[in-house]
Structures are given as C-alpha cells and as structure tokens.
Design a protein around this nucleic acid. Sequence first.
DNA 1: CATGAATGAGGGTTCATTCAT
DNA 2: AATGAATGAACCCTCATTCAT
Lengths: 185, 185, 185, 185
Amino acid sequence: MRLAAELFAEKGYQATTVRNIADEAGILSGSLYHHFDSKESIVDEILSSFFDELNADNKAVLERGGDPRTVLTELVRNCFRTLVPHRAAVMVMQNDWNYLRQFDRFDYLARAEEETERLWVGQIKRGQETGLFRDDIDARLTYRMIRDTIWVAVRWFQPAGPLDAEGVADHYVAVLFDGISTGPR
Amino acid sequence: MRLAAELFAEKGYQATTVRNIADEAGILSGSLYHHFDSKESIVDEILSSFFDELNADNKAVLERGGDPRTVLTELVRNCFRTLVPHRAAVMVMQNDWNYLRQFDRFDYLARAEEETERLWVGQIKRGQETGLFRDDIDARLTYRMIRDTIWVAVRWFQPAGPLDAEGVADHYVAVLFDGISTGPR
Amino acid sequence: MRLAAELFAEKGYQATTVRNIADEAGILSGSLYHHFDSKESIVDEILSSFFDELNADNKAVLERGGDPRTVLTELVRNCFRTLVPHRAAVMVMQNDWNYLRQFDRFDYLARAEEETERLWVGQIKRGQETGLFRDDIDARLTYRMIRDTIWVAVRWFQPAGPLDAEGVADHYVAVLFDGISTGPR
Amino acid sequence: MRLAAELFAEKGYQATTVRNIADEAGILSGSLYHHFDSKESIVDEILSSFFDELNADNKAVLERGGDPRTVLTELVRNCFRTLVPHRAAVMVMQNDWNYLRQFDRFDYLARAEEETERLWVGQIKRGQETGLFRDDIDARLTYRMIRDTIWVAVRWFQPAGPLDAEGVADHYVAVLFDGISTGPR
DNA sequence: CATGAATGAGGGTTCATTCAT
DNA sequence: AATGAATGAACCCTCATTCAT
C-alpha cells in the first residue's frame, strides 16, 4: 500500500500500472491480487484511511470547542499536519479525483467532503455572527478557497524545507485572518 | 481543439481517448491525424495558447505600473478573467499537469511558470519593501498560496453562478489583503 | 466469423482465445476489435444468425400446413438441413450453452427456444387429438427427446458420410414414427 | 469430489475454478492439492467412477441374457437409473467432453465408449438378424441416436418431477420400439 | 479530407499450481 | 491437513498511431 501510494502520487493513478506496483514490491503483478481485489481497491484503501484520520481529527477539534478563530486555526493545522503522513493520498485527491469520482465506489468520499464543508462553513458563519469575521465575505466561497489552498500545497510543500507543517499552517493562518496588508483595514 | 479541450477538462487527459475526440468531432479517429501530430500535440496547443494569453496579459499589467497592491489586484483579476475562456486548459493544468510534466515537450511550461513566479514574487517583495505588505510573511510561500487558490477554483467556479469572475476576484483580493478578521490587526 | 465459429466448434467457446481467432484470420488479436465489440458478440452473432434462419424455416413449414405427421417430418428435415451450414453454431449450443446462458445478453436464445417448444409440442398434441399419434406418450417429454437427439447428432454427423442430412432425417423420422420393432404394435 | 462434481455440472469444468471448489469445501485453494494432483485429476475421478459403474451394470445385463428387446430395455433402464446418482458426471460428459477429450489422459474414456458402442450395436444387429427389429435401419446410427437421447436428457431430467428414472426409461423404450404413430406400420 | 483496417504494445485481471511454514 | 503468499503464463481488451485507398 505504501509503495502503491507513492507511485500513485508520483505518476498519477492511471499512469501507474499494476505491474509498476508489483515491481516496486518485488513480486509479480498477479501476486498483488492475493492482497487486493483490484487496482481500485488499493487506491480506495489509501484514500479512505486518509479521510478517516482527517475526519476523526476534525471532530476532536470541534469537541475541544473554542471561539471560531481558534477552531479554524486548529482545523488548518490539522490539515497541514495530515499532509505529511498522507502526502500520497492528498496528491491522489488533487490529481486523480476528477477521474476516480466517476466510479460509484468512491461516492462515499464526495459525501465525506460535503460533511466536512458543513463543519467548516458552520464555523465561519458562527464567526461572522459573533462579529469575529467580516460579514461581507461569502462563507462557502471562503471555505473552498481555504480548502483548496491548503490541499493543493501538497504539490510543493516539503516538510524538510525551511518551514515545517506547523510553520506553513501558521503562515497560512496569519494571512487568512489578517491579510497581507499593513495599516488599518 | 475546442472539443478536445472540453473532453480533457471533463474526463482528464489520459481518460480521454483519441476516439472520444474524433467521435465528438464526427469523424474517425484516424482522421484526426490530418490535423494533429499526436494526442500530446493537441493538449500542447491547448495549454500553450492559454499560457501565451496569460503571459501577455500579465506583462500588460506590469507595463501599466502602479503600486504593488494595484498590480497584484490586476494580476488576480487577470487570472479569474482567464478562467472563463480557458476553463478547459486550467482544468487540464490542475488535473493532468503531474502526468504531462514527465514529457520533455512540456518543459517550456515549467519554465513559463518560473518566470511568472518571479514576476509575482517581485511585486510582493516590492510591497514589503515599501511597507505596504507585512514583512513577516514569506513572499514565495505567499505567491504559491495565491496562485494555487486562484487556479484550483476552476474546479467549482461557475461563471453563471452568484459571483462572476470579477466578483470572485474581488472577493479573493479582499480576503488576501485584509484577511477575514475584523478588528485591529 | 466463419473462422471463429469453426474454432468455437472445435475447441469450445471458453477454450478458444481471441488470439486463436486472430491467428486464424492472419491478423493481430487487437485488430479483431475493429470488427467485433467482444468475444461474446462474436458468438452472439453466430448463434443469432443460426436461430434466425431456423425460426424462419420452421415458420414456413407451419404455414405450408398439412397433417401433424407431415409437419413434424418437415420440421425434422429442417433441423438436419440446418445442421450442415450451421454446424458450428449447433456445436456451440450443445457444448457451451450451459456457460453462455449465464449472461443476460443470451436470454433471447432461451426465449426463442421456448417459442420453438410451443410450436413442436402443439403439433404433437394435435396429432394425439386427431388419433394420429399414441396418446400414452407425454408431448413435452417427447419433444425434448426429439430435439435433443437431433441436435446432439452434430457431434458425429458427417455430411460426407454414408448418409447425408436428408438420409439421416428420414432414418430418424422412420424410427420416431414407427419404432424399431417389427410386427404389430 | 461431490462438491467439485456439482460445481462442474452447474458451471462447467472450465468455468469452475479450483478456488470455487475450495471455497465450497471451506478450505483454501492450495489445500486442495493435498487431496488431488490437479484439477484434471478431480474430473478424471468423477468420470471414471461413473464409467466404471455403468460398464459393470451393462455387463451384468449382458450376462443375464435374454432376447435383444429385453436386453436393450434393460440397458436403457440402466442408463436412466445411473442418471440420478451420476448426474454431475453425465452433465460434464455432455458439456465438457469436447474440451476434455483433447487431453491424452482421457483417451481411455473414448475407448470405453467404443466398447459400449460395440455392445449396443451387437444387440441391435442381433435383433435385426432374428427378425425382431426392422432391417431397414442402420444399427450404428440407431445406437447413436439412442445414446444421445438418453444422456442428453440429463439437461432437463428431474427425478423429483412427474416421471422418475424408471418412468422416463419406459416412456423412452415405448417410443423407441413402437414409434409414436398409431395404426399399422 | 476522410476512411477503415490494421498494428503493437501494453493494460488489469484470472487462475492452476507450488511451497515454505 | 491446512495456510497464505507467490508464481507465471495467459486472458480479454484498449488505444495511440499508421497507412493504403
């Protein structure tokens, strides 16, 4: 699975052949089918384990409570933290989701994402209602921008680089809440 | 080309067969080869025409001059404006670039992007130097966040929706410069 | 199609590979798919053309009318006559139907057979009602025996042998109507 | 063996996988190889046990003696009686023989069938010589028709149906000797 | 400008069989 | 007696591409 995930991340799901994965594992392609039903089921396991962990972490943040800014900050940190161990899964989501979503078996991922959207949008709206966030922005649109910006970072983010996950998360949160301008709003 | 672009955008480059494109055009697959050298050359033309236009627009903004905030605002608007006519090309870049970049023939796109990066990062740094932008943010990191957020929007942006390209651009610029928080920075 | 039919007849549907067929045709296996959708569709065409012709012939016999003995005799002759040009199709029906019937696409063959059964059984019953045939035999059971005996003959019948199709048919009809015994019934 | 026979009968020899058999037996496919050398040897055992029993029964009939009509009647009854306990073996012979005969190891079955043919044809000819059977019929052809009609009945014969093995045998013998017509021959 | 037949490489998958444990 | 991992060959099928017409 780990080897397959890396190949999917590097070359893309479609461009990775079952034979590639087997080669990497040092076995024959047919032998893979002793462990997996199909190529689809491999990527399914990769993605679902990623989503399961992310959802659990998100729920934990919600349960800890706090004002919307705190909650959003923690959610963002969650994402960037997840980026490292699930780099491959995120990469697949970014590059291959448009292909994978056509298969019924991945419907559950679309539903999971909808639930996540409700969770984030709920926090943004609460922030607007309590006067913490500007109310001239669209909550749903803002969520999508946040979401996309975070996950797409997988394409260039290097944990070994100058900024680690925490560092990038904080940088991102800083821009998100206060913008890049100086001076009064 | 337009038909091919739409198919690439909808199903992805790899998942779109030459036969799909030919069917859409009402001819046989072999006949396509009177118009194109290869499947790669089709997507190449789609992408290069997009990049050419975008680069030209970006350069025009630079030539008009102005303070960094104005320039960045115009650059963002440029992008969102380009999103509509070049929706398919952007979609391909988002979904299939990871696959396409392995071919030498697309190296020029990577180089074009590097140039664009220099252009944007230059403006951000100029803003920091003139005290317009916070200097506790990383210019390169910030550029990447801006870039990703804009282009990834192609996945959900609908020009016929509540916000048109201009609207989304302004929304985005508002958040970018001043953040989503109220109150003093 | 003719080549494929012969291979199916000789080795069986499952044991005949697409490559076998292509080799026989002097092309590559992939090239077959320019002419056929799938291996299934090849056998489908073979079988349906056989059934179509047989049904048409049967209907023609019915339309010509006559007493049940005459009609049954003609139906039997029809079958044996069909055996020669559609040898391969009959062979496939005998050997591979048990496998093929699991696929929905061949449901129509089962339905066609039911219709044929009604036709034959109708004639046998009419013979019994008019006192032409013994009424201590079961019409449906008798039909099945007739049917099976005829078609299974494909396994050994050789048109170039001592008896041609007509000869075998007449032999069969003789036994069927009057039995192999001499003396009074 | 019983489980394998049922699967072979239901789905066909080729379409039944070793894994199918093992699943049915509640073990893993590899474990089957402690009991059988190969898939072929399983079907071999099924078929040979069927043929052994049938041959023994046939020889017993011959030894009991009697006029050809009596002997043939008993041979037919033998077959239909064997149909019930060896349903699966007969099914395999009907559906898969064309495939299995290509393997040398099953040559003995072809030879056993030749011997059986001699036995039956001998009785028919004896009947013709003694004036019991019409001599305008071909003994060998008639044997084949009898044989085929009997065994192919496995496809629809249901011991729990209106007619049991004995009933079908008698029905068949009645038609065979006296035909389905009324009136003088 | 288009056809349509064919190529050839490779795709995911199946499956009888082996074998160390 | 059974496991479970692996083999290796083959299977059906796909698809970008070529080319004579």
